[in-house]
Design a binder for these strands. Structure first.
Lengths: 240, 240
DNA sequence: ACGTAAGTGGAAACTGCATTCCACATACTG
DNA sequence: CAGTATGTGGAATGCAGTTTCCACTTACGT
């Protein structure tokens, strides 16, 4: 993946907004900042100190702050590309002629993204938790996923009582194992997902036991419930 | 663990250690502190500000600090009781004449504890991550659980490729869903555990698909992997 | 009842952050 | 090749939390 570094401005000619575009050197610094942030977020989570990001980007604190007045805006910038990537994974999966295979592939890939980038999960959760802006995008994604689920069910491979909201269940559960020590996180995640997929699959005939009701949690629910103070997933092992 | 908090229990008389026992009022304050910490940890996680704990306990900051020189010692004190509770749950489960039922009960109860007390999971993870002191206790617990697993497998209810280390898998996964908004966490957890238990159970005869290898993560592995200061190798410098 | 070591709270000094300010640098326009 | 708006880094500020200090209580043994 390349790009992403571009200056936000890049106005489609015509008009000149208040700040039409960044000076060339400034644009490059901005790109360095985003790249540094991407690394540090992946590595240490989205709470990584701004100063550390600035240092790694080789710029002063003021520059970082001028470009991204708060941590949120930096997170948004960094993860918009990853959310886009997510969507393309989902679209690919939905296009799979074998819906069950597509379903598995999607779950698998999503899980991998979570394990490989600690910041990804955190950004995702905090985003759906405190910002309704995702809703537009997520509506499309939710619909696509729901359709995939239906097709897999109609093909007789996915159990009937699987609910699309179970995707969030997978997401949260996998975020938990991702918090395990890094040498184990990957294996744990693979195994968790294997267990879950086997549970999702309609086995032989039927003898499937009923499940507790789905939480039916939807993104908007998460948003509305957002607790004012602090709700982050977990504090993974850190030094004393 | 224990001794970090010193004093505490009345010495079974006879000898007088350096600080034989707390004055009565001090002992009561200490108890108030522990109670306050228990609540705040459950509520807001183990990073809850010390000052808030002191305030809720109705004592000054100095008193809190004098009694528990660092956050760790307070955490240890608070959660030693819960770890004990865990063990008793496990022992009960192990005593169940129906091993599969005992297994399910244990997983279920453990899951409930996690959801109901945010601090419990955090304390557990940070403890096994940075303190080898648990090992003594955990050896017994691990053995008990392994025996329970074997019995359930021999009874033909638990799949053969379930590995005792999968308990940590459940634990981490469930810690993830516990981080969901509180109105949903409970339902999500119930459903996750239901899915997993169905996957663990030996269905009909056999048609069980193979799993990826277990991570074989053991408590001591977790411990050893904990880097002292800041774990962040990985992610080589990426080109912009 | 009283002397005193043990215990106390609140304020002060120290952190490690994020955020702002400002004297200086440099890309772009003409 | 200026002139100037646009950018810059580092030092100063502010803030939220922890840790320490100390003059003042109070439980406890006698």
């Amino acid at each position: 993946m390349a790009e992403s570094t571009q200056i936000e401005a890049q106005e489609p000619d015509g008009f000149a907004p208040a700040r039409p575009r960044l000076r060339a050197d400034a644009a490059q610094n901005r790109a360095r900042i985003v790249a540094a942030a991407r690394q540090l977020f992946a590595d240490r989570g989205i709470d990584a100190p701004m100063a550390a990001i600035a240092r790694r980007a080789g710029v002063g604190a003021a520059t970082l702050f001028r470009r991204f007045p708060d941590r949120r805006s930096l997170i948004d910038e960094v993860f918009s590309t990853q959310i886009t990537h997510c969507e393309s994974i989902l679209d690919d999966a939905a296009a799979d002629p074998d819906p069950w295979h597509g379903f598995c592939r999607f779950v698998d890939e999503l899980g991998r993204m979570q394990v490989e980038d600690r910041g990804f999960t955190e950004a995702f959760i905090t985003t759906i938790t405190e910002d309704s802006g995702v809703n537009e995008k997520s509506n499309h994604a939710e619909a696509t996923f729901a359709k995939l689920v239906c097709r897999a069910q109609d093909a007789g491979r996915l159990r009937r009582d699987f609910d699309p909201s179970d995707l969030l269940l997978i997401f949260f559960a996998n975020s938990g194992v991702s918090a395990a020590p890094p040498e184990h996180a990957h294996d744990l995640s693979r195994r968790l997902i294997a267990y879950l997929l086997q549970s999702f699959e309609t086995k032989g005939r039927d003898d499937q036991e009923p499940l507790p009701r789905p939480s039916r949690m939807a993104l908007k629910d998460v948003f509305e419930s957002a607790s004012p103070t602090d709700r982050r997933p977990l504090t993974p092992p850190a030094g004393p």
